[in-house]
Structures are given as structure tokens and as C-alpha cells.
């Protein structure tokens, strides 16, 4: 029986032989995932995170975290839930990693400079995350910090914070990855992706352009927004106190430039969604989150509107 690493090397060789590059390694590796029939062991590692993504998962939407544990995945270690602590905890993590048959979920960005800005046990995470990631079947970035760098990487990036993808590139590790952005990540997006992997042995289908899960991030928030009709009719919120149902674009809504199924999936037992609380989408699932421009705008700043940003993009594409 091959270990995962040996097999991955074979996948790489095969890929090199077939098309002269390692491009297909991942596809071949997906086949490897498919072979696994046991429910996946799941290990969580917390990087520069706030635990919001875990909290989000625990709140759940329709689907329950308890049912998830009962039916879908086995929780190998979780920093906020594990009964064990200290060296016992690290031993549990090392044990599941050594079996090379687990899903690794990373919450938070990884600081490169200084690496001391985040520890896992008694070592800087920057130095040791690679060991765990290279042994995982899939590395899942949960939330915008892990997916794109998020807030720690914004506005001057004080700690050289890296997304998981950039980190793995820097450490030269080729392992199947999934990115589930969001600040916080949506509970269905996390638990749903894991359930998909568990059920099919494959990663969920990805959007070709964005590389993100098609089902969750295949469409712009704007296009499925319950207030889209107001947009079509040019009715916009001018005053948060008096206009309670119109389009929020002119308050700075990032719905037109942010891909997610939030408006139809909704949050917290499908009770509501950000826009329904009458404040603009702040684009927390966008790779640009938390943006360099103000999150909120006034109607007079037309050139700043996300919609113009998007229109520009479309125009540019047409010109080509």
C-alpha cells in the first residue's frame, strides 16, 4: 500500500509524462481521494483567526453542527472544542496527520514576517503548518483570512499575513485545495463542502474563472438579491431611517462585485441575510475584502460605486 505522499509523487510523474507539466497532478490526486471510503477525519488549525468561522459553523443554518458530527465527519482535533490540551492535544494532531488521511481546515491567515505572530503549540505556525498541510488529503481554507488574506493582510499588512494558497506556494507544497471565503464563512459552505467530499470522494465542481465552488460562489449576490427589482426601477435607499426596502447600491453595496449565494441561502436558520437588515453588503466573501475604499458611501460619490467598478470591468473585457 502506498502512502499518500508516494502516491502523489506517482501522480506528479504521471502528469509530467502525459503533458509535460505537473498540471494534472491535482486531477489525479482527486482520483485518490475518490478511493477513500471512510468518513473523513477533520483537523482544524487556527492561524491568525478570530474564531468567527467556527462560531458560524456552530450556529449553523438549517443543517446542524451536531448532525454533521453524527453523520458526516469525525472531528479529529479542534482548538476550541478538543477536550485534550497542551502536549496531549498536539499528540492527537500529530497522530491524525501521520495517518495521511484527513481533511485539514485552516482558519486565518499565516504570518510570514514575523513568524512569531502566530504559534501552534510551541512553534511558529509559519514553520510547521507545511508539515500538516503536505499530509492532508485536502486543505480547506475556511473564511476570507485563510482564503485571501482578509483583514490581517489588509492596509499595510503588519505581519506579512499570507493566504493559505500563497503560503503553500511559498513552501512549494502541491496539495488539493478548496477556498471558502467569507467573514465569517457560511456554515453551509463549510459543512456542505465537507459533506460533498465525504459523499463523493471528490472536491465540489469549481468555477473555471474564480476557482471557487460553483454552487456557492457561481453567481453575484446582486443578481439574486431580493431587492434587485428596486435596482431595476432606480429606487435607492437614501436614508437608513426612512427607506427600509430599496436598493442599497448607492450606500456602497458590494453585492454587484461579490460572488455568493447568500441571498437565497440566507443565515441562521434562514432567518435573514445582511441586505435584509437594510445595510449594504460589505463584500466579505470578495477576494478584495476588506477593500481599500470606504465600506459605506453616499449617493454623491457615483464614481466610487461598486457598480461602476463592475461596469468598467465589463467594458474592459469588451474592448479586448
Amino acid at each position: 500500500m502506498l502512502t499518500r505522499r508516494q502516491f502523489l509523487k506517482k501522480c506528479r510523474d504521471l502528469s509530467l509524462m502525459m503533458c509535460g507539466s505537473t498540471l494534472l497532478t491535482r486531477t489525479v490526486a482527486e482520483g485518490f481521494i475518490k478511493l477513500a471510503k471512510n468518513p473523513p477525519e477533520i483537523a482544524f488549525i487556527h492561524a491568525q483567526n478570530c474564531m468567527g468561522c467556527t462560531t458560524s459553523m456552530l450556529y449553523g443554518n438549517d443543517y446542524d453542527f451536531l448532525d454533521f458530527l453524527n453523520h458526516v465527519g469525525h472531528l479529529a482535533v479542534h482548538p476550541a472544542l478538543s477536550f485534550s490540551q497542551g502536549s496531549d492535544y498536539m499528540a492527537n494532531l500529530d497522530r491524525v496527520a501521520a495517518e495521511e488521511n484527513f481533511l485539514l481546515i485552516v482558519e486565518g491567515s499565516i504570518p510570514a514576517n514575523p513568524p512569531e505572530a502566530c504559534y501552534l503549540g510551541d512553534k511558529p505556525l509559519y514553520h510547521i503548518l507545511a508539515n500538516y498541510a503536505s499530509q492532508a488529503r485536502v486543505v480547506i481554507s475556511s473564511g476570507s483570512c485563510a482564503s485571501h488574506g482578509g483583514i490581517p493582510a489588509s492596509n499595510g499588512n503588519r505581519t506579512g499575513a499570507l493566504s493559505v494558497t500563497d503560503y503553500l506556494k511559498e513552501k512549494n507544497i502541491d496539495v488539493p485545495q478548496l477556498r471558502i471565503p467569507g467573514c465569517p464563512a457560511h456554515p453551509d459552505h463549510i459543512m456542505g463542502s465537507i459533506a460533498y467530499i465525504a459523499a463523493t470522494g471528490k472536491a465540489p465542481p469549481l468555477n473555471e474563472k474564480s476557482g471557487q465552488i460553483e454552487e456557492y460562489f457561481g453567481e453575484l449576490i446582486h443578481n439574486r438579491c431580493s431587492r434587485f427589482q428596486y435596482f431595476s426601477q432606480d429606487q435607492f435607499v437614501k436614508n437608513f431611517a426612512t427607506d427600509k426596502n430599496k436598493c442599497l447600491l448607492k450606500k456602497g453595496c458590494r453585492g454587484p462585485i461579490t460572488a455568493s449565494d447568500c441571498p437565497v441561502r440566507r443565515w441562521n436558520k434562514r432567518t435573514s441575510v445582511c441586505v435584509e437588515s437594510n445595510t449594504p453588503c460589505i463584500g466579505c466573501m470578495s477576494p478584495s475584502w476588506p477593500f481599500t475604499t470606504s465600506l459605506y458611501l453616499e449617493t454623491t460619490q457615483v464614481e466610487d460605486l461598486p457598480w461602476s467598478e463592475m461596469k468598467e470591468k465589463i467594458d474592459r473585457r469588451r474592448d479586448k
Partner: peptide, 28 residues
């Protein structure tokens, strides 16, 4: 054992952004 630097990450931003950004200091 973990640092991000929120006080500096807010510098130069629109003051009202703080109502959204600072919430992300902590997910608990």
C-alpha cells in the same frame, strides 16, 4: 501568542468602517 495589529489596520480608513472591521477582532 497571536498578533494581527487591528489598531494600525484601521488607520486611514473611513471612521464608520470601524463598526464593521472591529467586529472581526473576535468571532466569539
Amino acid at each position: 501568542r497571536m498578533f494581527r495589529g487591528f489598531e494600525q489596520l484601521l488607520l486611514g480608513r473611513h471612521p464608520v468602517d470601524a463598526a464593521r472591521i472591529t467586529q472581526r477582532i473576535c468571532g466569539i
